[in-house]
């Protein structure tokens, strides 16, 4: 892939090693007019791990994803993605950094005027200029991965909510990014469809080695993603309950009024609920 052949910052090797810091927030602050959105937020996402952001609506969860993508710039603090400091980067430079990022937006944000094939292959056709047959093969491969091969020539308006989210996941993963950002991928979906979306997130993390940042207020989905693992047995993919050290690779961050109220794994989050009223109210 063209993006991966480009020269990157010196910290990239460290960032890309398993367990290396692929995303770092260091004392990030952001306000809109007088409203504080994020207050001194610091965290590190290790390569191949998952960071789950929880919190009430307006707590700043989605803002963190937009900061990682460079769609917003912080008022203060530093943000590293793939070893590159991005908060002062110009839009042209950010385009290069975004080559390693995929984002699944709330409601999917599929392009209305394009078919599922064109949506999923957008980056390959328009930005990376892959040969047509290679790009089409990749589109068919990722649509097969999310189980929507037969919908390839449909328009987004002909899909259900769950199918749109899965197409959005396919679009985000088509160019093989190292990091995937999910913005409330299961909100508004029925439990069965939510589980199918959760399974795609787990499969991408465990089978494709993608580092994930998941923003949600659907606790069931957050714990499901954190506590399950995907394995390939021959040609089949199976989901199992994760062993303790694997489950620890998924960390939860609870945001409260722009600041971090909790950071830790699933077991620690359950334990903290007994001591902290806000977390307790959120989990119950």
């Amino acid at each position: 892939m063209a993006v991966r052949n480009q020269r990157r910052a010196g910290l990239l090797d460290e960032a890309l090693a398993h367990g290396g810091p692929i995303i770092v927030f260091d004392g990030v602050n952001l306000s809109f007019d007088d409203k504080v959105i994020l207050r001194d937020v610091s965290f590190t996402l290790q390569t191949g791990h998952t960071k789950v952001f929880l919190g009430a609506s307006g707590a700043g969860k989605s803002t963190i994803l937009r900061l990682i993508l460079g769609l917003l710039k912080p008022d203060a603090g530093r943000i590293f993605v793939n070893g590159e400091e991005i908060e002062d980067m110009a839009e042209e430079e950010l385009m290069r950094v975004r080559g390693d990022l995929g984002m699944v937006f709330q409601e999917g944000a599929l392009f209305d005027s394009l078919t599922v094939r064109e949506n999923v292959g957008y980056k390959l056709f328009e930005e990376l200029n892959w040969p047509l047959d290679k790009a089409n093969a990749r589109v068919e491969e990722v649509l097969g991965f999310v189980g929507l091969s037969e919908f390839i020539d449909r328009m987004p308006s002909e899909l259900s909510g769950g199918q749109r989210r899965r197409v959005a996941i396919a679009r985000a993963m088509a160019a093989k990014p190292r990091i995937l950002l999910y913005d409330e991928p299961t909100t508004g979906l029925d439990p069965i469809t939510s589980v199918s979306v959760d399974e795609e997130i787990i499969k991408l993390r465990d089978l494709e080695g993608v580092s994930s940042v998941l923003v949600t207020h659907q606790l069931r989905d957050a714990f499901f993603v954190a506590e399950h693992t995907a394995q390939r047995n021959g040609g089949r993919v199976s989901l199992e309950r994760a062993v303790a050290h694997k489950a620890d690779e998924a960390e939860f961050i609870m945001l409260k009024e722009g600041g971090i109220a909790f950071e830790g794994n699933a077991a620690e989050l359950r334990q903290a609920a007994s001591q902290d009223q806000y977390i307790h109210a959120f989990l119950s």
Partner: peptide, 8 residues
């Protein structure tokens, strides 16, 4: 925003 995220 999706366009920008996809590098366009």
């Amino acid at each position: 925003a999706a366009l920008r995220a996809l590098g366009t």
